[in-house]
Design a protein around this nucleic acid. Sequence first.
DNA 1: CTAAGATACGGAACACGGTTCCGCTAGACA
DNA 2: TGTCTAGCGGAACCGTGTTCCGTATCTTAG
Lengths: 210, 210
Amino acid sequence: MFHNTPAACDHRSVNASAPRPAARRRRTDAKRNEDALLEAAASVFAASGVDAPVREVAAAAGVGVATLYRHFPTRSDLVVAVYRHQVDACADAGPALLASEASPFAAILRWVHLYVDFLGTKHGLARVWEGDPDGFTALHRLIVDRLVPVLTDMLAEARASAEVVAPITAYQLIRAVGDLVAFNPPDPQYDVRRIVTLLVSGLRQQQPHP
Amino acid sequence: MFHNTPAACDHRSVNASAPRPAARRRRTDAKRNEDALLEAAASVFAASGVDAPVREVAAAAGVGVATLYRHFPTRSDLVVAVYRHQVDACADAGPALLASEASPFAAILRWVHLYVDFLGTKHGLARVWEGDPDGFTALHRLIVDRLVPVLTDMLAEARASAEVVAPITAYQLIRAVGDLVAFNPPDPQYDVRRIVTLLVSGLRQQQPHP
DNA sequence: CTAAGATACGGAACACGGTTCCGCTAGACA
DNA sequence: TGTCTAGCGGAACCGTGTTCCGTATCTTAG
């Protein structure tokens, strides 16, 4: 699955002067618990959405809440750990689509829908996105770090070919798409994909001023 | 203001056969408290956002929480009561813009921005929107009832003049705009108005299929 | 193999939100 | 002015995320 995510890398004994006494190995039960938590979280999130209570995840992993919190200091860290590899896959798809699609714009459209599918399969992923006090949840940061550069390249290429003219940044677009998908359980009245397509197709329009 | 909302209409003595004994008048303190609550809620919401705790509103009104709950059975009912007249104003602006603006599309653009301003001035209004279990918060319903018809007309006119070609319904558009504005404290990195404009300008584009 | 001690654990406790309950107050009517 | 009940206050309840702390367990030196 992908749980080799040390979550917080081991900064013990980074003391410059002291001849550190061969730092201890990480306890095996710690590793085991972390894995169990990630697996439990993945399945609980899949079943009950990302909003599932932490206690439920801890219980499913057969572990106390404190243990969960030691490995993942905050709810959103857990979410990020669970979905990191999917975000990576999405990031990797960018250049691939640029190569395979007929035009940069077509590539962008498909890529954005990939992103929508990613967000869409986990109801309420956005709740994690929003809850940021000063603008940075772990998920927010992950997405900005991994996805924004990818989309930035795609947009640049689409601009070079004059397919895209609206002055929108990759960050703005990604965030907008996130907001759109955010709280939308499948609903016949409201197809998110259609709306996202609408948004993306706006990129080809010169923007009116107000 | 608009508080003649009996919250739950008086079903006392709806007994078909009995000659009901001239039902009591509503207690004056009840009316007074309802007004105080609405006033307090308006100012608290303005100061702390719509997410302000109910207790805070009750305290500001100088009443107990139970009183608040008797008048407004749920949080979102309170929110709706506070903002109802603003929604009305927004609805009224639709036909006016259609008449005053250069084109139906221009009218739509301006109207949508009016709506954005309405939502935007109250951080987190969307939280009320989303919290709907089966699809209907009070606010959701209010907006659908009042605003969707207005935008529907505007879209029809814009389609008649071929300015709008994308097959999007008023409901979809309003909901999308709501989602976009939803969780966005003013942020230099991310100007909601720009994104909304992007979305709206997509209406002029033939939609690509995926 | 054993013992010391760091590391990690479990679950109770805390803070904080919406909502409900219930004994009592005070307004309406006679 | 007295009765009766609509309406009130605020404590209590439930369900969140998060923290605390006494204890168990793993690692490692000897």
